[in-house]
């Protein structure tokens, strides 16, 4: 069993504190589906940002398409502001191998060339397979290799749980 996991809501509060000095009225906040999008919505509210929050679906840039094919996917990227020349805060829930972030960056670039991208992760579980690091992290956590960290929403509250990864 992994050690006790931190409270997701408390991590979001501390992330919002950490980000406060690093955003302005032109900053674009973008969450990666699905957990990252939830976290981005919370941060957006907490920071009182003016631009609407964006969402990225990474299906079309995944690197395991050859193995898993194209599954039914209703989620779509939605960027309600021009990406070109903008400072972007990219938000994900669990930072692990870094492959999701690589795909998200490719997806983001299909909408334009941002001025900068900084990465915000609710939790970092280590295990990177790519040279990717977060600029803002809620907490570092230890999870057994055979487990997945899942962010879920219950009664309007976000919660982190560790579940046995499907083989």
């Amino acid at each position: 069993m992994a050690a006790r996991l931190p409270e997701a809501e408390a991590l979001i509060d501390s992330l919002a504190q950490a980000l406060r000095g690093s955003v302005n009225s032109e900053t674009g906040l973008v969450g990666i589906y699905s957990g990252g999008a939830w976290v981005a919505q919370r941060l957006h509210r907490a920071l009182g940002l003016q631009l609407p929050v964006g969402q990225l679906a990474i299906t079309l840039h995944r690197d395991d398409f050859d193995r898993i094919g194209l599954h039914r996917e209703q989620r779509r990227s939605h960027l309600p502001f021009p990406v070109e020349g903008r400072d972007i805060l990219l938000v994900d829930d669990v930072l692990h191998t870094g492959r999701t972030i690589r795909a998200a960056l490719n997806e983001l670039w299909d909408f334009g060339r941002p001025k900068s991208v900084r990465l915000v992760a609710l939790v970092d579980r280590g295990g990177r397979e790519l040279p990717i690091a977060a600029d803002f992290t809620g907490a570092k956590v230890d999870v057994d290799a055979g487990e997945s960290l899942v962010l879920s929403e219950e009664n309007g509250r976000l919660r982190l749980t560790a579940v046995k990864a499907s083989p």
Partner: peptide, 22 residues
């Protein structure tokens, strides 16, 4: 499944870069 997948590609065709690497 085909129609839902096409929904995604309609949005790709409205982007600045109308190309994905699948």
């Amino acid at each position: 499944h085909i129609l839902d997948t096409a929904d995604q590609f309609v949005s790709v065709n409205e982007r600045e870069v109308k190309k994905v690497p699948l």
